[in-house]
Design a protein around this nucleic acid. Structure first.
Lengths: 312, 312
DNA sequence: TCCAGCTATAGCTTATATCGATAGAAACAT
DNA sequence: ATGTTTCTATCGATATAAGCTATAGCTGGA
């Protein structure tokens, strides 16, 4: 069994076609066929069911592919280990970002970063916090940007910034006349929330739990984007809370509806997180510096109170 | 980079000597030298510092070796995947057992198992619960026997038996005259405990916490073996608690000092645990059946109350 | 029935893993 | 110092295996 054979298997599994897989792996189709046959002989099983069109994995084959992916992934991390030592900043770098941070933060640093470090090929994925934790732990992601603290054994956190919560109060709301919000003003039943799975939603629930100890009975409406929440709010369905950076993008005609909190303002802590194995640390440091640099100009709040992003 | 090269690196790292490593890997020394040089060239680093005698790993080398071990481990699990599918029961099988279970349980099933499944080469290690969890997660152990429930994401538990706690009450103790113990009789300050790190100790602490809510002030004495605890107890230093199976080995002249609990007796749950990846499941099932079989004759208790084996 | 699209096989070439023999370097013993 | 032992690197030869081109063989539409 060689790593090359495993890569061939992965390619065929992906393209369900020997000929295409051969092109992708830069060898001829007979080479691929032979190597895969050799592996099948060695393990004494069939990986592919060649009678099906297009070709299919056998039951064992599926498990073989899974394990092959583990091995190939680990083997590709060997180069990272070396780069690490040499201080080389380059190669592919997989970054996860949670949905409520992605649209506002990404445009702020992306160009900046890729100009400064052209040898790094950034691959960015929008993932929720749970997915991020899994994928950092198993080495799929090199780093991620998420709300913290997560207090996870295997994950390091470096705080990028504190992003205050800002109230969006529609006209004719009971809080419209207030100039500054207080946590005590909030009523969870009156706040439009993102749909389940977003940690920003959990943060708000935690915030309200902390302010009054009553249970949470119902969420009137739920949506996946702040834009929708603001529109629903304008329809008189309740107020909502936005992360500060989102308020910068809001339609200027609506900024009059924004209400900040009195100090200390509730805020979420946003961090760059990565595995304690610290592979690609140089790239992580570079990314941290770039993001911290651009954010310094955008967020000036000092006196904040961090709200936990996780349930319970 | 080939898996073979990585195995050579691991061998040299282990033996700190090319010649010995060559013997262990069944190739000649020049072969080893060349392959390792090739890998070093490819990665463009030095793995070994050959100026030192005996040979040493460079700083990068240490990390390379770590990653190489990951890759080689994963690659060896490929065979397990195949065996899994074929229902083959054999190969090496690494089993961890916590210290308070090892001496009583192991002799009960070991011969039995290896007679029944001669193709399995059992490698057994005595490890505490924390070590077991780590080593199951990273694939070092194939399974383990420990006190449960552990409620760990990546670990499956199959209960083998419930083992009641039994009091050992020395003569002239305030509880000597009691025929049956009750949890309320226990006073944590009066109980001789194993040293820190044993989950049986944590279980007893949980038991006493549950019975009366007072804090735990001091542990008068601590030891690593039940034999010592019994001797100390006989010296008048207090009572102690033993897991049921241990009481079967006790000196017959001392069995008069044993006191069982009233039903439901506090007990620990002992399980066979293994990774959710379920590699070598056939072997695990075989092991489960053998152990459950021998234990059925030894433990007849029905009405027990499980005590958590973990701190807090 | 023919053709298009695949995969497998054959025969050959090239690359390389391995070997035995030996050189070279370092540590050790006398 | 000097010979001896111990260890790693280098050399040249060889067997193994990976790769290529050409083509056979299979299968499912037109």
């Amino acid at each position: 069994m060689t790593i090359t054979q495993l890569k061939y298997v992965l390619a065929v599994a992906e393209h369900q076609n020997f000929t295409k897989a051969a092109e992708k792996t830069f060898v001829t189709q007979p080479t691929l066929s032979m190597q895969i046959q050799k592996l099948e002989d060695e393990l004494d099983i069939l990986i592919f069911d060649r009678s099906k069109k297009p070709i299919e994995l056998t039951e064992v084959g599926k498990k073989i592919v899974e394990q092959a992916r583990n091995i190939v992934n680990e083997s590709e991390r060997m180069q990272d280990v070396v780069d690490q030592e040499k201080g080389f900043i380059g190669g592919t770098f997989k970054l996860g970002i949670i949905p409520t941070i992605m649209p506002t933060l990404l445009p702020m640093f992306l160009k900046n970063f890729s100009n400064r470090y052209p040898k790094v090929q950034l691959k960015i994925e929008e993932l929720n916090t749970d997915e991020i934790i899994t994928k950092i732990s198993d080495g799929y992601l090199d780093a991620a940007i998420a709300a913290t603290p997560l207090k996870h054994d295997k994950i390091k956190e470096r705080v990028l910034y504190y992003e205050p919560f800002v109230g969006y109060i529609p006209e004719n709301h009971r809080l419209t006349s207030k100039e500054k919000l207080e946590v005590g003003d909030l009523d969870i039943d009156d706040i439009l929330l993102l749909e389940d799975g977003h940690c920003f939603r959990d943060g708000i629930i935690n915030l309200c739990k902390a302010s009054k100890h009553g249970g949470i009975d119902k969420f009137q409406l739920e949506s996946g984007s702040f834009e929708t929440l603001v529109k629903l709010s304008n329809e008189g369905l309740g107020m909502t809370l936005l992360p500060y950076l989102h308020t910068l993008d809001i339609n200027p005609s609506l900024t009059k509806n924004l209400r900040y909190f009195k100090n200390p303002s509730p805020a979420r802590e946003v961090s760059l997180i990565y595995s304690k194995s610290e592979l690609k640390l140089q790239t992580i440091n570079a990314l941290y510096d770039i993001i911290a640099g651009v954010i310094r100009g955008a967020i000036a709040f000092q006196d904040v109170k961090v709200i936990s992003p996780t349930k319970k």
